[in-house]
Design a protein around this nucleic acid. Structure first.
Lengths: 123, 123
DNA sequence: GTAACCGATATACCAAAGGATACCGATATA
DNA sequence: TATATCGGTATCCTTTGGTATATCGGTTAC
């Protein structure tokens, strides 16, 4: 039932269609901003400390990195662990819930690749 | 090779991972802004005229509707057809290319639904 | 003693996104 | 004559997103 959504669009009522609107917007909101995807991708191959992320993600400022990490933490996509070293070290890790974004990211990547190709052809 | 991307993250180099960054950002850019998804979803069950979209998409201003439709047109997701009626009627249609976004939208919707559920549970 | 590292925060600023409102010419309706 | 419809555009304004730069306290290395 819900599985057929968007696959036989002509059969769907406006109300049925609008049911997908909010979830899609929720998902986009979680990924919104210039740096969330770069951060998530950076964390995919392993935990990272603040400075490591800062070095790895070119162009990001410490303020934005801190802010975006907080938002990812609020959405339980990332965990923040403080270690009692000297000086203190803080490790960021993608949660298992965070890895459930893989399908979304892969769908976006696949479409993005096709789109790049299409834009190239037009020129 | 590329298919395994994000499925066995620990095996991937930074350069391999960063290959997905640009396509994902491209895709998100195409969907960016407050109104693109509502417009696309509105067009999924059939062609619509400007005023129909304006009425159907609650909250949007004519300025934003016009602007977002132009961007969708530039990306060949939507076509604009002017009919020589009186007064003139303009029809917007999702292209077949536009419908290739279905996988992306469904992935976003599925994740968004799970996320809503998860947020609810926390409370 | 002074410079650097760590994980940030504070302040100031700027540009882009989006909203509110008014208006357009052509036509139809009251 | 006045008002409404259609598909927008023009102008102004506010909000948000993002940048730049300086600074913090505690510690270590030079």
């Amino acid at each position: 039932m819900a599985k057929n959504f968007l696959q036989n669009p002509s059969k769907l009522s406006t109300t049925e269609c609008s049911k997908s609107l909010l979830p899609v917007q929720d998902a986009l909101y979680v990924l919104s901003g210039k740096w969330k995807i770069p951060i998530i991708i950076a964390l995919i191959h392993g935990n990272k400390r603040f400075k490591e992320l800062h070095r790895e993600i070119t162009g990001i400022t410490a303020k934005m990195l801190s802010k975006e990490l907080k938002e990812l933490e609020v959405n339980t996509l990332v965990t923040r662990t403080v270690y009692d070293t000297i000086p203190v070290s803080v490790e960021y890790e993608l949660t298992t819930y965070g890895t459930t974004l893989n399908d979304v990211i892969m769908a976006l990547r696949d479409w993005g690749l096709k789109h790049r190709q299409k834009i190239k052809e037009k020129k």
